[in-house]
């Protein structure tokens, strides 16, 4: 019997609980912007690469040498990510290539909305000229950038000889997310306890079909294979 009015009906249970099945990505907002960036980059005529590594493993030097080899043949644009300073973008501009500096002011990675802003600035700098290759140099960090799709077509992870060959085992998520691993500063191999074979097999253990290219950008060693890799990405 109902308590409130004494009627003979059984009380109707009021179940206010709602169950909502969502199945939505936690990074949905970033991923949507990344897809938009990819379309934007393609409209700019370009293929984009996201370079990820620890600080100081040679991302900017690699870009300088890459520009040196491709200038006159391809139109290149660079987006630089750092916590502070315009320094890296200035190094790239000295090579005669438009470069946008994104400073995160403490943030440990670039995300898709930041790159979106960078693409517009790059477009403005190029005054309507098309690009062939856009490099996005991420903040030096081997952890956080792995989770953020920026809208790149290829993700390249750099591992420099002084860091040690056990890096892929220590930072598996980042290496697993890569399309290419570059072992940089190979001219230092005689001076460091770095085993190239061990590093390569550690990478293959994480992702067997992941290619590994060793190079020393400033010395020109291994640069031909890297340049061939880039050229093969371009639409014929």
């Amino acid at each position: 019997m109902c308590d409130s009015c004494g009627c003979q009906q059984d009380p109707v249970p009021i179940n206010k609980e709602k169950v909502v099945d969502v199945h939505e990505q936690l990074l949905a907002a970033n991923n949507e912007q990344a897809s938009a960036n990819r379309r934007h980059i393609e409209k700019m005529g370009a293929v984009a690469l996201n370079l990820i590594s620890s600080p100081g493993s040679g991302k900017t030097s690699l870009l300088e040498q890459t520009i040196e080899r491709l200038k006159g043949r391809l139109s290149i644009g660079v987006i630089e990510g750092d916590l502070e300073t315009e320094r890296d973008a200035e190094r790239i501009r000295k090579k005669g290539v438009p470069a946008v500096q994104l400073t995160t002011g403490g943030g440990c990675h670039l995300d898709a909305p930041m790159v979106h802003g960078g693409l517009h600035v790059l477009e403005h700098m190029a005054k309507g000229k098309k690009f062939d290759l856009i490099f996005i140099e991420n903040v030096g960090n081997l952890v956080c950038p792995a989770a953020f799709d920026l809208g790149e077509h290829r993700r390249v992870v750099l591992l420099s000889v002084p860091e040690g060959s056990d890096k892929p085992e220590k930072y598996p998520a980042t290496f697993r997310s890569a399309d290419l691993v570059l072992v940089t500063k190979t001219d230092l191999l005689p001076y460091f306890d770095f085993n190239l074979e061990e590093a390569t097999s550690a990478v293959k253990l994480l992702k067997p079909d992941l290619p590994v290219l060793p190079l020393a950008a400033e010395k020109g060693e291994g640069m031909d294979a890297w340049i061939d890799y880039l050229l093969a990405l371009l639409p014929r």
Binding site: E24, Q25, R176, P208
Partner: peptide, 19 residues
């Protein structure tokens, strides 16, 4: 040991119960 990961990078909000 040549195992290639299939997916596994997902971060998904599956379900919410509310009243």
């Amino acid at each position: 040991t040549r195992l290639s990961p299939l997916g596994g990078a997902e971060l998904i909000l599956q379900q919410v119960r509310m009243e």
